[in-house]
Amino acid sequence: MFSLHGYGPSIFEGTILTLEVSLASLFIAMLLGISGALAKLSRARSLRLVSQIYTTIIRGIPDLVLMLLIFFGGQVFINQLGPMLGYDDYIDINPFIAGVSTIGFIFGAYMTETFRGAILAVSKGQLEAGTAYGMSSFMVFRRITLPQMVRHALPGFGNNWLVLVKTTALVSIIGLDDMVRKAGLAAGATRKPFTFYLVVAINYLLITTLSIYILKQLERRYSVGVREF
């Protein structure tokens, strides 16, 4: 049952693509998460409102629907926009970009909540002390908030990452050659779908298990200097 009929390298390529999509989405999600968290905690009402709408909408809509909306809708949008800007050829949306931006956008909302909680966990007295030393608010953020919020953000961040990796399986639906789609192609050719999907499942387990190990190490590292009870 466990002969891969020469499709091993193909599945491996898919695994690399899955990792690329995951890391690229994570990058976008972290940028959106930090901005979202700062917006949620800002004094400007409009910023708070926008970030609140963002996180509420994302939590209400399934990932797949958003992805199809961005993939198919984005296609129509760009091709309506193109002629207006004097560009007449038909533009294809790259599924990699559609997938990464959707997943980044979705997990940006979850990261927003994680980072917001982590920023709130940094004690206020320290921020006041920083201001009292004459630091600018950016410097207070960079020197005091950021290094300390990492410790509080790590558990939530780790959870989000694990869910994100599994969500990347959806990009196979919009035609990206990640490991799920590669397995589907191999399954079609060899009539061994169970074998190939099981291999992919094991790959996901390996990625998540390795991630959990690394996250544990990071948590330990960032908790240095914190008293353990």
Partner: peptide
């Protein structure tokens, strides 16, 4: 561990496409 560590899509494919292998 298995069901929390793998995507639901893959689990569904294992059942829908995969079981036909046996």
């Amino acid at each position: 561990y298995f069901f929390r560590g793998t995507p639901l899509l893959v689990q569904m494919f294992l059942v829908y496409y995969g079981f036909g292998q046996f």
